[in-house]
């Protein structure tokens, strides 16, 4: 069991992080913590993707000294996918944090439950 866990260490870590991040998103009423947990979920998916492309005893796909021999390099496709994903995840979290600032300006709190109560009270 332990050897299996160690063998698939990246996938196991990624799945635990994903589930715990999901739990944080569900349970924290604070919107900023939700965004933080969302970032952690993002990173866990990236970790799983990139770990699938890794092949032992091979180097990153930069064709300097080895020529174009595919059996010397790791899979470049997950790296390309994740590279764009990281940058987009930053812009998504920047956008949601800006939204949270506006919500704070309108309601005076970042607690989602209090915001909902306040909205109900104001009849919106």
């Amino acid at each position: 069991m332990l050897s299996l866990l160690v063998e698939n260490r990246y996938a196991v870590t990624a799945s635990v992080l994903f589930a715990v991040g999901f739990l944080h998103v569900l349970l924290h009423p604070d919107l900023i913590k939700k965004v933080l947990a969302f970032n952690i979920m993002d990173s866990s998916v990236f970790l799983l993707l990139a770990s699938r492309g890794m092949i032992a005893a091979r180097t990153a796909a930069i064709l300097t000294d080895g020529g174009a021999d595919p059996s010397r390099y790791v899979n470049p496709i997950p790296a390309g996918l994740v590279l764009t994903g990281i940058v987009v995840s930053v812009s998504v979290s920047a956008f949601s944090l800006a939204l949270i600032q506006r919500l704070y300006g309108a309601y005076g709190t970042t607690d989602m439950r209090k915001i909902l109560e306040e909205m109900k009270k104001r009849g919106e």
Partner: peptide, 26 residues
Amino acid sequence: LQAPDLAITEAAVGTGVTGVLFYLTL
């Protein structure tokens, strides 16, 4: 994991810029 491009981007963006954005919001 043999992905140096990702390491550079994560160090600059995931560590630097996202942290700064969270800090500024707080």
